[in-house]
Amino acid sequence: MWSWVAHRVTGVLIFFFLLVHVLDTALVRVSPEAYNAVIGTYQTPIMGLGEAGLVAAIVFHAFNGLRIILVDFWAKGPKYQRVMLWVVLGLFAVTMAGFLPRHLMNVFGGGH
């Protein structure tokens, strides 16, 4: 139940970011200055935390999506759905442990 809610919430969040992200990337067609000005705001600490949240949403949605596929197509999927939720959360933790230090160092680590 809660994984279903979380899948919907993260999905909607990612979708709205996607709309904005295509629009900001489209600025490369306006001018290098326009693109660099907007992408520059993505490199501030607050947006850096937002990106961490976005990546967390994507990673959960991705791994839980694989779990949904296994529940649907694997004969033993429904039997192991609860175990697989813990596997999803474990993989989520491992992936974020690999991503967060690197990303937060890039955002806060004194470069530029």
């Binding site: 290098p32 693109y35 660099n36 992408i39 850096g48 690197r102 990303h103 470069g111 530029h112």
Partner: peptide, 17 residues
């Protein structure tokens, strides 16, 4: 885009090009 090199800090017009 986020992990290699300087991550998000490396992204600008030249990066996309």
């Amino acid at each position: 885009n986020l992990m290699v090199g300087e991550g998000v800090h490396a992204i600008d017009f030249g990066f996309v090009a």
